[in-house]
Design a protein around this nucleic acid. Structure first.
Lengths: 214, 214
DNA sequence: GACTGTAGTAATCGTATGATTACAAAGTCA
DNA sequence: TGACTTTGTAATCATACGATTACTACAGTC
């Protein structure tokens, strides 16, 4: 609850009320993050997104023009969330510097699992380098994160690489849903403990388990 | 050319010759690796795979039963290739131990870009944790790699985590097609140099560039 | 209270795609 | 040679999905 991620004021959706197109777009992007995260760009359907957002499928298409545009908007939102969470963590380290900066940023990254689908959607985007539009956006997004580490955090290239690597591992573990078999499969349990050395209880609490699949 | 990856005897496809179903399956899996790597599980079509393998689309489906089975077979193959390449590197370190084991394994991993689509396909699989069949297979596969690091290489949990993390970063960079903008975009150039500190020339040589998109 | 713009849906269309069926050609072996 | 198996394709099907069109309802304003 202390993270910046949880502070976003979700759009209230009283049944019957009409939202402005911008409010609706924001709401749809939230839903899209979940769906794209679970099924990937091609695997997700605009209908699933629409259902999750509580609107009709044609309206999703009309508000964004195309599924591709929706995806681009979604990864844009994810990156904004990511970087602003990082900036909050960085600022917090600057004033009351009890904990090292790296720790704080790392925790902020893990905390972003509360924004459902964010890590998975970005990871999917990073794998679509072959797609002309999405690939270009993904590369630019990745570079934005790199620049944050180098310029705003002041890391050298080696340190920044290590940060990125740890981040990619965390995203992978989340996408794999390792948490589903935690406790039941001893191999998985060991793997999971090793990969989330400190944040274990928090991750277990926040990440949805078995049955509940989105 | 020194890697184990390049030593696989590709199936020769003289036009007119009929292959055994096992030979054909192997050939199709090779093609599937490329296609799944570039487009993902949902994004790839059995028709694309068939075309790349030089057979008809129905035949692909018949030889594997379903697209899902084809994907499972493909990631099984990818994991076998990965682990056998690791074992070769490990064995080579054991006898003539000039170079440290970690370096060798890392190089073997990067060298696997010669098996087109391997890294990307595995990365896609790792993101499909929500899919019942594929998710389970992906988790088991990931655990196999983990067990290699722990049991066969003898790493402790911390070291193994670092290895995995570096691997995930490399896979991400490949999936992003960072190479495409290497040289033209200065940001990308710096990022790329930092992430492939040693293997740079080799990677640049082996990874396909711009136009050539698979 | 008609007029206009915006939010939203129902119905539908075209197409891509995984799968199935039916059939042809090649190989094997008595 | 003839029966039988195995490799392989052409034609086709059913369906899912992104997109389009045509329409409705609500809100503000003059």
């Amino acid at each position: 609850m202390t993270s910046a991620a949880a502070s976003a004021p979700d759009v209230v959706d009283e049944p019957g009320r009409r939202l402005s197109s911008d409010e609706r777009r924001a709401q749809i992007i939230r839903a899209a993050l979940t769906i794209f995260g679970a099924r990937g760009y091609e695997g997700a359907t605009t209908d699933e997104v629409a259902r999750a957002a509580g609107v009709s499928q044609p309206y999703v298409v009309r508000l964004f023009g195309s599924k591709e545009n929706l995806f681009l908007a979604t990864i844009g939102f994810a990156l904004d969330q990511l970087l602003s969470a990082f900036r909050v963590a960085l600022a917090a380290s600057d004033d009351g510097g009890e904990r090292p900066v790296g720790k704080r940023i790392g925790e902020a990254y893990v905390d972003l699992i509360e924004v459902h689908g964010l890590h998975q959607t970005l990871a999917h985007a990073y794998l679509l380098g072959s797609n002309p539009a999405i690939g270009a956006a993904a590369r630019q997004g990745f570079v934005r994160v790199w620049r944050f580490f180098r310029d705003e955090m002041g890391l050298d290239a080696e340190e920044a690489r290590t940060f990125l690597a740890e981040g990619m591992l965390i995203s992978t573990m989340i996408g794999l849903r390792i948490v589903d078999d935690y406790g039941s499969d001893p191999q998985i349990t060991e793997l999971f403990r090793a990969c989330f050395p400190n944040k274990l209880p928090h991750v277990l609490e926040v990440l949805p388990r078995n049955e509940h699949r989105l």
